[in-house]
């Protein structure tokens, strides 16, 4: 690891100013930053520690919805009683992520900004070509081992999966990122890869995530985060789905539905096509399954990851069916 200087910021303004300097990086829980520094992927000159900033670790559930400070830990949010009941998909997305030790260290702001697990991205010595790390250098993953790579949102430049879980639930429920001077919907916060995979978010140098707000809704209250992976715990998603569902009084007709996918796309992936196919419809299992397939519109496989195209719609369908118990024990 390269030598760096360390600055403990006393205020958000100080942190922001320091972080604008070239080579400066913010440090929250450090579970992404240090990990990547050890791989030689990030080499900060200055690390600006924001963990002592006051007032950024609050969690509030009110009439309007949920607000989470950027410095709240993953475990604090996951275990928050009202988050668990009012926003179950959000609590679950966190408790199913990483390990207990990591969740105790890691913050919500840092969580959004975690980087891809693409093995080529993380091994600069052996694989110099990586457009995300070194723009224009090429993509080592293409033609390599791609079991965990994305099938949605990829470009010729990069096929790396966005690995996080929380952001998937946030995208599903129209959360907004609070950057202090501006408020950005999470879905816009994460950029599509296109030509510039090195640009992953709208965040500008020196901008600090202050927090996240999630509007209250019936669908958010009746939600689930379903994460599928080979290992029972402590693994990133092979495919995951955040789903919220509001049904009419008949218990079958969809009045509101939110669907997003994780583990399969280059950014947290809202599946509007699935939502549109089901809204206003009376659910049955076949309908749910066929509508869930729409989530894979435009999906491209790269060999090893072809299974995701089959798996992800099944995860979406199961998540929806779990929320509609009147359809019988289909889940």
């Amino acid at each position: 690891m390269k030598d760096f200087s360390y600055l403990r910021a006393a205020s958000a303004e100080e942190a922001s100013r320091a972080a604008q300097q070239a080579g400066a990086m913010l440090l929250a829980g450090g579970t992404t930053l240090l990990d990547l520094a050890k791989c030689g992927v990030t080499e900060p000159d200055t690390v600006v520690d924001i963990t002592r900033l006051a007032g950024l670790d609050t969690i509030n559930v009110g009439e309007g919805g949920l607000t989470i400070g950027a410095l709240a830990t993953m475990s604090a949010v996951a275990d928050h009683p009202e988050v668990k009941t009012q926003f179950p998909a959000i609590a679950q997305s966190l408790s199913l992520a990483a390990s207990a030790q990591l969740r105790n260290m890691a913050t919500i702001g840092g969580n959004l900004l975690q980087r891809t697990r693409c093995a080529y991205f993380r091994d600069p010595q052996a694989f110099p070509a990586c457009n995300k790390r070194a723009p224009g250098s090429g993509c080592s993953a293409l033609g390599g081992v791609t079991r965990n790579h994305a099938v949605l949102g990829t470009s010729e430049k990069c096929i790396a999966t966005y690995p996080g879980d929380l952001a998937v639930a946030l995208v599903a429920f129209d959360a907004v990122v609070d950057l202090g001077t501006r408020q950005v919907p999470v879905d816009d916060f994460f950029l599509p890869y296109g030509e510039a995979p090195e640009r992953e978010t709208l965040l500008q140098p020196g901008e600090i995530i202050r927090g996240i707000t999630v509007p209250a809704s019936v669908a958010a209250r009746q939600s689930v985060y379903l994460k599928v992976r080979d290992r029972q715990s402590y693994e990133f998603a092979a495919a995951s789905a955040a789903v919220g569902l509001e049904l009419e009084a008949d218990g079958r007709t969809v009045s509101d539905i939110h669907v997003a996918l994780g583990g399969v796309a280059t950014k947290p992936w809202r599946a509007l096509a699935v939502e549109q196919a089901l809204i206003g419809k009376a659910l049955d299992a076949d309908l749910v399954r066929s509508a869930s397939r729409l989530s894979m519109e435009g999906a491209v496989s790269h060999g090893d990851n072809a299974y995701k195209i089959e798996l992800a719609p099944r995860v979406v369908a199961r998540a929806i069916l779990q929320l509609a118990p009147s359809l019988g024990d289909l889940a």
Binding site: V228, R229, D230, V315
Partner: peptide, 8 residues
């Protein structure tokens, strides 16, 4: 899991 292929 019949749909997901996960083995426990």
């Amino acid at each position: 899991d019949e749909d997901f292929g996960t083995v426990r």
